[in-house]
């Protein structure tokens, strides 16, 4: 099976998020970026399928947010081909609609059987890349996927997550796009030494894709952090002092039996 995986770098939520001077967009000039978590799972799911059923894994990413490190890490984990789509604005990521059109253009010529993309990215506001891409390609789509198995050469068995740890199993005809929430096992760890080795041995192919004009249908008037929490009463002091206070609270409320 020929599998393509789309990965993205997104702002690291551990770091403070800054808004630019317009008040309507993120200031990404000094942002730290990380691999989008569900894209990491999409890569893992692709590697698991390859290990089980053979085939190849191509990883694609638009060149935004210092993505090279994650591309080399993908190569170190077992991706066969790495492809970077050129993007020339370091301060603005492509919209899901723009990105989907760019990836679709490349994927049409690559001709994969299956495209895996993380189902969500934390900074998505007005579109979902995986679903947009499926519509651009005209391929079937299932999102919120937590497991994929090959049924035969023509189709896959796909588990979609529902509340209460319940899954719905679907048979999906190939070619298809899946929006991955979680792989069947946690993304594999790859030592830094192997990533360094991949940096020396891996050729990241670069490709130009036509950048479609941005047609924003959703106008952002203001982007801002929520007002500070008011509900929680903050308990302060040393760990022992806080622990004693919590224990007293639990006793007071009859929760220690």
């Amino acid at each position: 099976m020929k599998i393509a995986v789309v990965i993205r770098h997104v702002p690291d939520l551990i770091e403070p998020l800054e808004v630019d001077s317009t008040g309507k967009a993120f200031d990404l000039s000094s942002a730290a970026f990380v691999l989008n978590e569900s894209d990491d799972h999409a890569l893992e799911q692709a590697l698991l399928l390859k290990e089980k059923h053979g085939g190849s894994v191509t990883v694609l990413s638009i060149d935004f947010g210092d993505v090279d490190n994650s591309l080399y890490a993908a190569a170190a984990k077992g991706a066969d081909q790495i492809l970077k789509l050129l993007w020339d604005d370091p301060n603005r990521s492509p919209s899901p609609q723009q990105a989907a059109r760019m990836y679709a253009e490349v994927l049409r010529s690559q001709g994969p059987d299956l495209v895996l993309v993380g189902v969500q990215a934390p900074d998505e506001l007005d579109g979902v890349l995986s679903a947009e891409l499926a519509v651009c390609l005209g391929w079937p789509y299932v999102g919120v996927v937590r497991g994929v198995q090959a049924a035969d050469g023509q189709s896959l068995l796909v588990c979609k997550e529902f509340p209460g740890a319940v899954m719905a199993q679907y048979e999906v005809r190939l070619p298809a796009v899946l929006g991955i929430l979680g792989a069947e096992q946690p993304p594999r760890y790859v030592p830094v030494s192997r990533i360094r080795a991949a940096m020396k041995s891996t050729q990241i192919a670069e490709q130009e894709a036509a950048v479609p004009a941005e047609a924003a249908r959703v106008e952002v008037d203001q982007l801002y952090p929520p007002a500070p929490a008011e509900r929680a009463e903050m308990l302060t002091g040393s760990p022992e002092q806080v622990a004693n206070r919590i224990a007293a609270l639990l006793e007071e409320k009859g929760l220690l039996r």
Binding site: A229, R231, A232, E233, M234, E240, V242, A243, A247, L256
Partner: peptide
């Protein structure tokens, strides 16, 4: 954002709190 829904909040590394909290609850019990 968890502090928006919590009744009580503690700004601390959880692993610094777990042991003293276990001891404090044990003592109360």
């Amino acid at each position: 954002p968890i502090f928006d829904v919590a009744d009580y909040g503690v700004q601390m590394d959880l692993m610094d709190l777990v042991e003293p909290l276990t001891q404090a609850i044990q003592a109360k019990k």
